[in-house]
Amino acid sequence: MNKFEHGGNIYAARDNGEAWLDFSANVNPLGLSSAVYQSVSLGIKDVVHYPDPKAAELKKAIEACYNVPSYELVLGNGASELFYLFLQTVRPRNVLLPVPSFSEYERAALAARAKVNCFQMDPDDNFRIDWDSFMGALAVADCIILGNPNNPTGSLITRNELVHLLDEMRGGHQWLVVDESFLDFLPYDSRYTVRDLVEEYPNLFVIQSLTKFYALPGLRLGFGVACPMLAKKLNAGKDVWNVNLLAQKAGVAALNDKEYQQHSRKFIAEERQRFFERINGRKGIRAYPPSVNFMLLDVRGTGLTSSEFTQRLREKGILVRDCANYLGLDGESYVRVAIRQSAENDRLIDALEEL
């Protein structure tokens, strides 16, 4: 398995020609909002023009939705681009990653020629960070990257915990990058987000994806929040047209669609609990409690490796994320599944019964 392989690869054709049922990509199961669909459809005629290099309308929509000033914003062609941009710009020598975590953190660090140090989180404690031990590991790093909630475990870090960490780092020469890409799925994020603290802590960079919650992975869209000095430096280091015209239009429409946002959060809150209760403990499967729109499964009790488990489901037309290439996960014991529409989730449960 490729070390940096991701989920969501639906492009390999099935033998019977039918479409895959994709649980491997963590995207809003409600799909595109009608407002986004209409905006992109109408915007096709405008692709003969360059996108707005200042992305003024998109920044205005982000300001209103996330309550951050435009001078703190750095727009990205998806959130992933911003990890590379940040690390290539600040050039840390040693990056500390609590693992398991999103593989692009490691890949972006290696691309910037940084040494990657791992801090192992305990599966028996639902992969929460042991803060006493973690504080002791800070000395080896000049940059720490945290997912909140973390991918693939779904574990959350509270705002208070992050503030305590930032206070411990104050006055030093360490960067903290917080990936809040899935926080939009929570009904309220005030207990977790730190995007409003970048001016108080200028060593903080917060990244937010807009592709996950608004189902736009094919368009690619995200943003970062940084203190004005860092934001200016990052903006100077990126392609001026890195966010294409259709992505800008889709972002504006998505951020203004309050009904879609409320419906999505309500649906995920209800369906993730129902899905968790149905799948946890089924035939040797341990499910870690989901916080947002995905769930980590320990499948070793089935007697199958994660690759065997994944292949059996592929034979039924179902894709799940084999987590064998995640740093910090035990061998071939884990898979990750997205939370989809209720009928689709039930289809996965039925497939597990047969398997």
Rank of each mutant, 00 (worst) to 15 (best):
N2Y: 13
E5Y: 10
E5N: 09
Y11R: 10
A12L: 10
R14N: 04
N16D: 15
A25K: 12
N26V: 12
P29T: 01
P29A: 03
S33I: 08
V40C: 06
S41F: 07
D46L: 08
P53A: 13
K54P: 00
K54R: 12
K54E: 15
K54C: 03
A55V: 11
A55G: 12
A55Y: 07
A56Q: 15
A56P: 05
K60V: 13
A64E: 15
Y66G: 03
Y71K: 13
G76Q: 10
L87Y: 08
T89A: 02
T89H: 02
P92C: 00
R93Y: 01
P98T: 05
S101N: 13
S101Q: 13
E106C: 04
L110T: 09
R113G: 06
R113Q: 15
K115S: 06
C118H: 15
F119N: 12
Q120N: 08
M121W: 04
P123I: 13
D124W: 07
M135Q: 02
A139V: 15
A141V: 03
N148V: 14
P149M: 05
T153D: 03
S155L: 01
L156S: 05
T158A: 06
R159H: 11
L162E: 09
V163R: 12
L166Q: 08
D167H: 14
W175S: 11
W175T: 11
W175D: 12
S181R: 01
S181H: 02
S181T: 09
F185Q: 02
Y188S: 15
D189R: 01
D189L: 05
R195T: 14
L197R: 02
V198S: 07
P202W: 05
N203F: 00
L204A: 10
F205H: 05
F205T: 01
F205A: 01
L210E: 10
T211E: 15
A215D: 15
L216K: 02
P217C: 14
P217T: 14
L221H: 06
G224D: 11
G224M: 10
V225R: 08
L230T: 14
A231Y: 09
K232L: 12
K233Q: 14
D239I: 06
D239E: 14
V240E: 06
V240Y: 03
W241R: 13
W241K: 13
A253R: 00
L255Q: 08
E259Q: 09
I268E: 01
I279S: 03
P289Y: 07
V292P: 00
N293M: 04
L296V: 03
G301W: 12
G303R: 08
T305L: 10
E308T: 00
E315R: 14
K316N: 06
R321P: 00
Y326R: 01
D330P: 07
G331S: 12
E332G: 07
V337I: 15
S342I: 04
A343D: 12
N345R: 01
D350P: 06
L352H: 08
E354L: 13
L355M: 15
